Simulated assay, not measured.
Amino acid sequence: MKLSRRHFLAGACALTLPAPRVWAASTLTFGPLRIDSLSDGHLVLPLEFGLAGLPEAELSALVARHGLAADGLTPPCNLTLLRDGTHTVLFDVGAGPDFMPSAGKLAEALDLLGVAPEEVTHVLITHGHPDHLWGLLDEFDEPVFTEAEYMIGRAEFDYWMDPATVETIGEERASFAVGAARRLEVIAGAVRKLEDGEAALPGITARLTPGHTPGHMAFGIAGPGGAVMVAGDAIGNHHIAFEQPDWPSPSDQDPALAAATRVALMEEFAASGMPFIGYHLPEGGIGRVEKAGSAYRFVGSI
């Protein structure tokens, strides 16, 4: 397995003040497999989104220890692209133009890699939240990746397509449900719905990792000489998720179930040493889990 890191300069940052944006792309290679983690930009979230409920002293220490901004979180969004010479597989499609101005930069990232949307053969979706799904359609409500076969977990698809979801998900996330259903409806007749443990493609296996959403899927990738897991939001950040993985996070739709999933993955990754790609983790999201006493730490240099 080989890892390389590249940085690309791209246009202006999509915040209120223009500034240069640095595109980071990290590459893993397993023999003929090339896996790129590329930027869709970043989110801008209130601090309590992921850290609500922490005692003030503990929160302040966490912010200082990890160099977090005291007034908010700006997690990166790391999309994964796999190429094996036959398939060009995109894991999630980013936020698109309608969620946050700081995200939705996938087209620029693909262009910098020399990959056209029509070259993508398969799109595998971890879950239906806006920063992972809303880039599915263009400004004419047509699929961006016109030649791709789409796949998503069956439980995840059924959840977002259920008309009752918008009424039960809570007021703050109601727009998530409306947006997900609108996009999934466009591909509903052709999307392949995956079960836990099912092979999506040769060497790519769906793994049910619920809690962040009811049917959240991770995807294990096995190649000559190595393996990696695309973990989506099953491990959602590089700080509290590692230091206190059993802490219920308000960013998860089922905090208790998500915590159980997160603890199990931490144990698995720490024991096996297998690298994984986290959607909102630093350094392109590619790294490993190491034990740190009774907790864990994210090691981004592998």
Results as ranks from 00 to 15, higher is better:
L194Y: 00
T165P: 01
A200F: 01
R182K: 14
Y159D: 03
E167L: 14
G189K: 05
I204R: 00
H216L: 11
T168C: 09
V228I: 13
G225S: 13
A222S: 14
V166R: 07
E167W: 11
A190V: 13
G226C: 10
A231G: 12
E167N: 13
A164R: 15
G170E: 08
A227K: 11
V230S: 05
T213P: 03
G203R: 02
P224R: 14
P163L: 09
I169A: 06
A177C: 14
A206W: 00
E185G: 15
A177H: 07
A199H: 11
V178T: 13
W160M: 06
I221V: 15
A227G: 11
M161E: 10
V230P: 03
R173S: 12
R192E: 04
S175R: 08
A180G: 12
R182H: 14
H212W: 08
R192F: 05
T205K: 02
T165I: 05
I169T: 09
V178P: 02
T168G: 08
F176D: 05
A177E: 07
E167S: 12
A218H: 01
G225K: 09
G215Y: 00
G226H: 04
A199F: 10
G189L: 05
A190T: 15
G211I: 03
A174K: 05
G215W: 00
P224K: 13
S175V: 10
D162N: 15
A177G: 13
G220Y: 05
L201E: 07
I169L: 11
P202V: 10
V178R: 11
V186L: 08
H212R: 08
V166A: 15
H212S: 11
K193H: 06
A190P: 10
A231I: 08
D196F: 06
P210R: 01
V228K: 00
L208V: 07
A218N: 04
A174Q: 10
E171V: 15
A218K: 01
G215F: 00
A177R: 03
V228D: 00
A218V: 01
T165F: 03
A181V: 06
E172S: 15
G189W: 04
A177F: 10
A188Y: 09
A188W: 06
G223V: 03
L208F: 09
M161F: 12
H212Q: 12
V178H: 11
E172V: 13
M229Y: 10
G203C: 07
A199S: 14
I221A: 02
E198G: 02
L184I: 06
G203E: 05
S175K: 09
M161I: 14
A190S: 15
A227S: 15
P224A: 15
G223Y: 00
R182I: 10
T213L: 01
Y159V: 09
H216K: 08
I169W: 01
A200S: 09
P224M: 13
G225Q: 12
A222K: 07
A231T: 12
T165L: 06
W160K: 03
V186C: 11
H216W: 03
E185Q: 15
L201G: 09
A227P: 06
H216N: 05
T213S: 09
P163R: 10
P214E: 05
R192I: 06
I187G: 01
E172H: 12
G170D: 09
T205C: 04
G225F: 11
R183A: 07
E171K: 14
A231K: 03
